[in-house]
Write a protein that binds this DNA or RNA. Structure first.
Length: 132
RNA sequence: CCGGCAAGACGUUGUGAACGCCUUGCCGGAUGGUGGGGGAGGGGAGGAACUUCCGAACUCCAUACGGCAAGGCGCCGGUCCAAAGUCCCCCCAUUGUUUCCUUGGGGAAAAAAUGGGAGGGACCAUAGGCCGGGGGUUCAGGGCCACAUCCCUGAGCCACGGAAAGUGCAACAGAAAGUAUACCGCCGGGGGCCGUAAGGCCUCAGGUAAGGGUGAAAAGGUGCGGUAAGAGCGCACCGUCCCCCCCCAAUUUUUCCGCACGAAAAAGAGGGGGGGGAGCAUUGCAAACCCCGCCCGGAGCAAGGCCAAACAUGCGUUAAGGACUGCCCGUCCCUCGCCCGAAAGGGUGGAAGCGCAGAGUGGGCCGCACAAGAUAAAUGAUCCUCCAGGCGUCGCAAGGCGCUGGACAGAAUUCGGGGUACAGUCCGUGAUC
RNA sequence: GGGCAAGUGGCGGAACUGGUAGACGCGCAGGUCUCAAAAACCUGUGAUCUCACGGUCGUGAGGGUUCGAUUCCCUCCUUGCCCA
C-alpha cells in the first residue's frame, strides 16, 4: 500500500457512522476548526463502537458549511484540508475516526496553514501519535 | 491616442517532473459466484458549468380528442438557428422467409424485422438576438416675433391588436372629471330700493361655455356670419373619423421558362394623393376587468422503473391459548423453558418461531452520457516552464537579471435561446496625425 | 438537481381592489413621580439641508407602464421553504 494514499475507504462514507461520531465522539475546537473524534480503545466512546469503526484504519469526514461561500470556496477549503490530512495522517493514532468542520470565517488560505491547523487541533484533543 | 459603447474570438501554456483523487475498458492471478486488491494504459470543468427567465427532448400521470375555465402571447418582413430529439430517405451489417440460378456446397434478387451510421432531408423561437421597414411617444433645434396646432431635422425611449362592444377607475385641487358642469364673469326678463335722468345696488327664476382660475387631463383650432349674450348654431379653411379609387412601399407568394436572368399576376406593416360622407358623437388607463386573433393537459430525472435488507402492525400456522372486563392494566386457569423436590407441589421466567402482506425509514442498480461523469459527491497540491502586467536593478538603447503575480467562477438527464459576473489579450469600431 | 415564496424606520408588523407611507406594539431619548431606581403616565423618534417655516430623498437594487407605483410588469440581489 502506498504511503500517502487517500482512497475511498479512508473517508467516512455513510450516514450511520457520521451520526455515531457526531453523537459519541469527543468534541474539541480551535479558532478555525471544530472536530469530533472517536478512537477505539482510548476513550469511552471508542468502546461502544460498532463493527464498522472497529475494523481498523484512520478515517476522515469533512463537513463544509454553506456559510463558507460559493461552490468554488467550499471545494477549495475541502481539498486543502484533505491534502493536509493525506500528507500528515500518520501523526494520528491508528483507528481514529474524525469529522472536521471549519468554522465560518475560517482563515485557511493555503496548504501550510491547513496542516498547522490540523496539527493544532489534534494536539488539543490528545489524539496525536506519540511514537512519531 | 481614447474608449470598453456596437460585432466577434480567447479566457495564462505545456502529450513537462514526481505525489494524490474520480472513472473506463484491458492484462495476469484467483474463484462455484461476487467483491476487494495488483499492473501498465485512455479520459477527467465553463464561457458563462452561474441564474432558472423562456423553450425542446425524455418519463410518469386513465393516451390527455373536442369544448369551457385558468394561463400566455400580440406592428410588418428577413435572418440566426440544436453533436439533443422525432419522422422520412439513403448506406452497411445480422436474422429468418420467399423466388430464381446451380452439381447436394453455394450464389443472386425481393420485401420484412433488428442493430448501426459525426450520411442527407423535413419539423421545432410565444415578452428570443441581429438586420431592414413602419408607427407611437418625450426632448432639443428650425419653419415662426409670440401662443396653439401642424410640418421638417436630430437624439432618447416603447411587451407596438382593440378605448365608436361593454364594465370599472381618475386621489388632491377645482363650479364641473365623462349622460359634462354655472363659482366668478357675461346676457336679457320680473320684483324691490336709491337717483331728476343716464344708471347703480339687492333679489328671483332663467340663458350661456366665448373670458378667469384649478388640475396630469376641462371636451377640436382660426376666421367670418349669427345672437340678448353665446355656442359646429351655420359657413370656409385646417385637424379628426368612415367609405371608394389611384400611386408609392421593405419584402413575400404564385405562374411562365430545363436552370439563372427576366416577365406577369397577387399579397403587403403602412405612407401619399383625389373624390364622397359625418358637425365632432371619438379624454386617458387594457403591464384594470375585458373583447378579437393565435398558442396551450399536468407534474417533473428528488420524473420514473427494478432489487434485496430490517421493524411497528395484521393474517395464517404451531403447544404457545382461554376466562373475568366496554377497553387497557391486573388476576386466575392451561401450556412451554429453567430451578428446588422422591412425589404432590412450590418458585421463577417467557410471550417467541416460521410464512405472507406491510405505512414509514435508510441503502443499491437502471434512468446516466457514441472519450468528464459521481451519490458524504473526482479534476488538488509542489516544482519547472510559457504569456501579459507591476516593482527594483544594470544598460545610451534593444534588452538582460531578481522579486512579485493571474478575473468571474465548479459539471450531476441532455440540448438551444435570454439575463447577469469577469483580470488580461487579440480583432475590429471611433477620433486625430 | 428541480419547483416555489418573501424582502417596508433599530426590531416585529400594518397600509383592502394604484391616490398623504410609515398605523399598532417593542425598543430608544426626554420629562413627571422618587432620596434613588423599577413600574405607571406624558411627549418625541426614517435620512439629509435649515435657527425656524419648509424643501429634497426614502418600501432590497435597477428599469418600464401610468398624471401618479409598497401595490402592476421585466431583469438582477438577498433570505427562506418544499420535493426521494
Amino acid at each position: 500500500m502506498k504511503k500517502f494514499s487517500f482512497t475511498r475507504n479512508a473517508r467516512l462514507r455513510c450516514r450511520k457512522i457520521f451520526d455515531f461520531v457526531f453523537s459519541e465522539g469527543e468534541k474539541s475546537s480551535t479558532r478555525d476548526l471544530v472536530m469530533w473524534a472517536c478512537v477505539p480503545g482510548l476513550n469511552k466512546a471508542g468502546a461502544k463502537a460498532p463493527g464498522l469503526i472497529a475494523n481498523g484504519g484512520r478515517r476522515l469526514g469533512l463537513v463544509i458549511s454553506k456559510k463558507t461561500g460559493g461552490a468554488v470556496q467550499r471545494n477549495r477549503l475541502k481539498r486543502l484540508l484533505r491534502e493536509a490530512y493525506r500528507l500528515s495522517k500518520y501523526d494520528l493514532l491508528d483507528g481514529a475516526h474524525i469529522i472536521v468542520y471549519p468554522k465560518a470565517g475560517c482563515a485557511i488560505n493555503n496548504l501550510l496553514e491547513a496542516r498547522k491547523a490540523l496539527s493544532a487541533i489534534w494536539a488539543r484533543a490528545k489524539i496525536k501519535n506519540a511514537e512519531r
